[in-house]
């Protein structure tokens, strides 16, 4: 049981709570820069400098917004940004005092939904039909990837015997920070692979980027976003990206201090980017079928192996 009386207001904890979302956003934007550079190299061109996303965001916030679609639109964007920030507070990093001891996986999995929901809220009140279609697709996709991802997480929980992410992380590091033999990627490999495939959907990378498919629905949920709203969307995307990758690293790749988790996240992201750049986009129903077939079956098998061994 969580005893809230134990929660002491600590300057360091407060500072780290403030620091984490900022760090996550900055790293997320850097990742985006790396992605653009990487895709440029595959396209046989130079590509933009790594700091390009930062300039983009500053420019977007400097633009005059000549439109709004009411308070839900304004609030949805802020709610979107709050989701991944909250999620990051509950992910344990070695030696960083945050709220990880006071929450467990259930809390995190719920906070995961807040961000996309907020953005969907904002996009849905926008006047563009493409935005609404994008929202419908994004929420649909959420159903698609949540199931295999949850099952994969469940396999980890069953193996670890606890829902506390701090304990899961500590368990993986018991053989040493650099020794992968206790990582859940090695202990429950089948479920981990399923989770990895679902992660592609969680991040909205191809082949699961139906929500923002530019050639089909404009750019989907982003159609009506411009200026400051798009800037917020960018920050949300960056923060969400880092939070999701960090969660996966802590769950399956051993976690560790913040810098190590960042490196692991970068490794995961480069793999995801390579798939994104060279792979096509499925139709929504095909993507569903794919997500509910292979990763789900794999995750179930992984769960079975854990439960019956």
């Amino acid at each position: 049981m969580i005893n809230l009386n134990n929660f002491q207001i600590n300057v360091w904890a407060a500072l780290s709570l403030l620091f984490l979302p900022i760090y996550g956003t900055a790293i997320g934007l850097l990742f985006m820069g790396i992605f653009r550079r990487l895709s440029a190299r595959i396209h046989q061109r130079y590509g933009p400098p790594l700091w390009q996303p930062y300039a983009d965001v500053i420019k977007l916030f400097s633009k005059k917004s000549n439109f709004s679609h009411g308070w839900v639109y304004d609030l949805g964007v802020i709610m979107g940004l709050a989701g991944p920030a909250l999620m990051l507070w509950f992910i344990p990093f070695n030696g960083l005092p945050n709220m990880a001891p006071y929450g467990d996986l259930i809390v995190i999995l719920y906070t995961m939904v807040i961000g996309p929901l907020g953005m969907a809220l904002a996009a849905a009140v926008g006047a563009s039909p493409w935005g609404v279609l994008g929202v419908a697709r994004a929420l649909g996709m959420m159903f698609g990837y949540e199931l295999p991802f949850m099952l994969a997480v469940l396999a980890v929980v069953a193996k670890a015997g606890t829902l506390r992410l701090t304990e899961i992380a500590a368990m993986q590091q018991s053989a040493g920070l650099w020794n992968p033999s206790n990582w859940f990627y090695a202990l429950v490999p089948v479920a981990a692979v399923a989770g990895h495939i679902a992660l592609q959907g969680v991040m909205g990378e191809k082949p699961f980027d139906q929500a923002i498919a530019p050639h089909e629905i404009g750019t989907g949920i982003m159609t009506e976003f411009g200026g400051k709203y798009l800037g917020m969307m960018f920050l949300f995307a960056a923060l969400n990206l880092f939070a999701e990758l960090a969660l996966f690293s802590v769950l399956f790749l051993g976690g560790g201090p913040l810098w190590l988790v960042t490196l692991k996240a970068l490794f995961l992201y480069v793999i995801a980017s390579l798939v994104d750049i060279t792979y096509g986009r499925f139709r929504p129903d095909q993507a569903f079928a794919l997500l509910w077939k292979w990763p789900t079956v794999l995750a179930l098998i992984g769960l079975m192996i854990v439960l019956f061994s």
Binding site: R36, R45, Y46, G47, P48, P49, A55
Partner: peptide
């Protein structure tokens, strides 16, 4: 690829 204007943002 030939001129790659994304170099300049």
């Amino acid at each position: 690829s030939r001129w790659d204007v994304e170099r300049f943002g």
